[in-house]
Computed example of a mutant assay.
Amino acid sequence: MAVKYADGVVLGADSRTSTGTYVANRASDKITPICENVWMCRSGSAADTQNVAAYVSRLAQEHAVSVSSAGADADEGIKCDVKLVANITQKIAYQNKDRLQAGMIIAGYDRKLGPQVYGIPLGGAMMENPFTVGGSGSAYIYGWCDDTFRENMSKEEAQAWVKRAISLAIARDASSGGVIRLVTIDATGVSRQMIQPIEQPLCDEELPAVKRS
């Protein structure tokens, strides 16, 4: 999922990759950098979304360097227009909709339009929203997100909101689990957090985890 707050965006995801009832990877990273200021949340087929992310990253970075008279700043990294990255991703998803099982979220911050969140679900549509959710766990939290979302949250409020939403999805969805990863992007740069299961908010009727010494 991703949400736009007053000064930036927060992306969040669980870390479970499953194959049917088998957990293939309990600590995968579903939030992938496209450019320095634009990241992608991936759901669906891991193989499909990993390849789409790599292809979009190459195209977007080539474009960013080609339109910059000075090229990329070695200290800042390559920065892209968020909407451009979303449009490239949407075009690939739509043109290959019969061959891809890929749901993606593009979110980031640029100087032109500020913080932006774009949802690109299965089939290749594209929608800009204040927040968007995807993947199997999203079905369990749509109502909660609609009920509790507020415009212009602070960074700390947005991070807490995303963390709570993903913890609820993990509690209800067998295909979601593991750690919670957060990526926060604003004008100052990018920061990452990882919330281990023992640190995640408890949901209804859950027992607190026993911390082993």
Rank of each mutant, 00 (worst) to 15 (best):
186 D>T: 13
112 K>C: 06
31 I>F: 05
17 T>G: 11
76 E>T: 13
127 M>Y: 10
163 K>V: 07
90 Q>W: 01
198 I>F: 05
64 A>W: 01
211 K>S: 09
120 I>C: 03
23 V>Y: 10
156 E>R: 08
190 V>D: 13
201 P>Y: 02
105 I>T: 13
52 V>G: 04
107 A>F: 02
69 S>H: 11
20 G>M: 12
109 Y>R: 06
176 S>N: 06
152 N>V: 09
152 N>W: 04
55 Y>W: 03
212 R>H: 08
52 V>D: 00
96 N>E: 05
113 L>C: 09
107 A>R: 00
7 D>N: 14
127 M>F: 10
95 Q>T: 13
53 A>D: 06
159 Q>L: 12
10 V>N: 00
111 R>N: 11
47 A>Q: 11
33 P>M: 11
42 R>K: 08
157 E>Y: 07
4 K>I: 02
35 C>P: 03
195 I>E: 02
147 D>Q: 08
190 V>N: 08
73 D>L: 10
197 P>W: 03
164 R>K: 12
93 A>H: 04
148 T>V: 13
117 V>C: 12
30 K>P: 08
68 S>T: 05
1 M>Q: 06
92 I>K: 02
152 N>R: 13
163 K>D: 03
181 R>A: 10
34 I>G: 07
64 A>L: 02
195 I>R: 00
64 A>G: 07
20 G>D: 07
74 A>W: 06
57 S>P: 05
119 G>W: 00
86 A>I: 03
70 A>Q: 14
106 I>V: 09
27 A>D: 12
86 A>H: 01
50 Q>Y: 08
118 Y>G: 03
145 C>R: 04
207 L>S: 14
54 A>T: 12
184 T>D: 11
40 M>E: 07
100 L>H: 09
112 K>I: 13
22 Y>Q: 10
145 C>Y: 02
54 A>V: 04
73 D>G: 00
198 I>P: 00
61 Q>R: 14
68 S>Q: 06
185 I>R: 03
12 G>V: 13
17 T>E: 13
201 P>K: 03
